[in-house]
Every structure is written in structure tokens, then in C-alpha cells.
Amino acid sequence: MVDTPAPGTVRPGGRTARVRETVLRTAGDLLAQGGFEALDLAEIARRAGVGKTTVYRRWGTPGTLAADLLDDMATQSVPRADTGSIEEDLRANAHLVVKTLTEPRQGRLFKALIAASLCDEQAAEALHRFYATRIEEWAGCVTDAVQRGELPDGTDAQRVIAAVSAPLYYTLLNTGDPLTEADADRAAKAALAAARAGTWSTAAPRGRPTPNCDN
């Protein structure tokens, strides 16, 4: 028995790839304009100039389409910085997040995709994959810093990177305050200070004797 791939997961080249690119771009525009509730497959097919049958056969539901859009965004995201300094790398990460979230289309798109993840399981799983992919991409900055002696041994690289973007997404979604470059600098500085203090280190602190349980 041959397994049938889930809708939106097959990515061949040629015309099919062009159709996918057009549909995803159109879906992103609709999400940015009207949120998840505006993600109507028939309307997307009309705007993209693609047959409705093609869109319904390949994606099937708005949630599947939103998930495919997130997966595509993850593969096309900007590579991590490699400045040779953990301070500068974390600043670059924070500024990239702010730049993305304050860009008119991208900021609205991320809000819509986050909203979609709250009511659609496929979108939620894709959002988790998106953040995991981006955090893993930038985690190399932290592991390199540990090797250079800038951060404690055993520092959890993923947690450090997550700590950079967490306050920025909080501002975007909860306070409504405009994000600025100063916010990016503060987020990077706070995450770096915590990492240097060993907040996310699993290694035993240097200079302290290991307890002897036999005594």
C-alpha cells in the first residue's frame, strides 16, 4: 500500500511549484489583510488565477494552507548572524525579529498566523515547527559562544535564543506598544546577561566543590 502525502506537503518543481508559490503569496496577502477568517480557498483560487479544484485538492482546508505557508516561511527565513561575538549575534537576532514584526505586511501576517494556531491544530503544529526551525538556526550563535568561552559550559542554546524574542512577541501581542530598535537592544542585553549568569546552564558552577554524599 502506498501512503498518500498530506495535502500541501508535496513540493515538486515546474508548474506545480509555481502554483504553490502563487497560492501561498495570495494566502499571505489575505491573511495580512483580513486575518484567518479571510482565508477562503475559493477566493484564494480566484485571486491567484488557479482552478478551485487544484486548490481544494492540494490544501483542502484553510488550516492546511496556513500550515504550508508557515513551513515555506521557515525555509526562506534569513540565516543566523556569525559576527564572532555573542553580544552582536543576539543583537542581530533581536533586530531581525523587530524588523519582521514591524514590517506592515509581515507584522499583520504573523498576528494572523498566531491567531490561526489558536483555533486550528495543523496551523498550531506548523507554528511550533516554524519557531523550532528559527531557534535551531540561531542556536549556533550560542554554542559557538560557549566554545569561545563567552558563555558558561552547558548553556542551553535554544532557551537563550527564545529569551531574546519572547519579550518582543509579548509586546506585539499583549501590550500593543510599538516595537523599536531600543526594544531589540534591551531584549538582547537581558538575554545575554541571564546567559552569562548561568541561568540556562546545566553545568556545575566552576570553582565550587562537588558535594560528597558519603560524608
Rank of each mutant, 00 (worst) to 15 (best):
R105M: 02
R105G: 07
Q106S: 03
G107C: 04
R108M: 03
L109G: 10
L109S: 08
L109E: 08
F110A: 07
F110Y: 10
F110E: 01
F110K: 01
K111L: 13
K111E: 03
K111D: 10
K111N: 04
A112D: 06
L113G: 05
L113C: 06
L113S: 06
A115W: 13
A115M: 12
S117L: 06
S117C: 13
S117P: 06
L118C: 09
L118G: 10
L118E: 05
L118I: 04
L118F: 11
C119I: 06
C119R: 10
C119F: 00
C119E: 09
D120V: 02
E121S: 06
E121R: 08
E121P: 07
Q122A: 10
A123P: 05
A123D: 07
A124P: 05
A124V: 08
A124R: 08
E125D: 14
E125R: 11
A126V: 07
A126I: 07
A126L: 13
A126E: 08
L127P: 13
L127S: 13
L127V: 14
L127C: 12
H128Y: 12
H128I: 14
R129L: 14
R129G: 14
F130Q: 10
Y131W: 15
Y131V: 10
A132R: 15
A132E: 14
T133V: 12
T133N: 12
R134W: 03
R134T: 01
R134H: 09
I135F: 07
I135T: 14
E136R: 09
E136M: 04
E136W: 02
E136V: 11
E136H: 05
E137R: 11
E137W: 06
E137V: 03
E137T: 06
E137L: 09
W138R: 07
W138A: 07
W138S: 05
A139D: 03
A139N: 02
G140L: 04
C141L: 10
V142G: 05
V142Q: 02
V142T: 03
T143H: 15
D144C: 08
D144I: 01
D144R: 11
A145F: 10
A145V: 14
A145M: 13
V146E: 12
V146M: 12
Q147P: 12
R148L: 09
R148I: 06
R148N: 12
R148E: 13
G149F: 15
E150N: 13
E150C: 14
E150S: 14
L151F: 11
L151C: 13
L151Y: 15
L151P: 13
L151G: 15
P152G: 12
D153I: 15
D153Q: 15
D153Y: 14
D153L: 15
G154A: 05
G154T: 05
T155A: 08
T155Q: 09
A157D: 00
A157R: 01
A157E: 00
Q158A: 03
Q158V: 01
Q158P: 00
R159N: 00
V160T: 00
V160G: 02
V160R: 00
I161H: 08
I161W: 01
A162E: 06
A162R: 08
A163E: 00
V164W: 02
V164K: 09
V164A: 07
V164G: 06
S165V: 07
S165W: 02
A166Q: 09
A166D: 03
A166T: 06
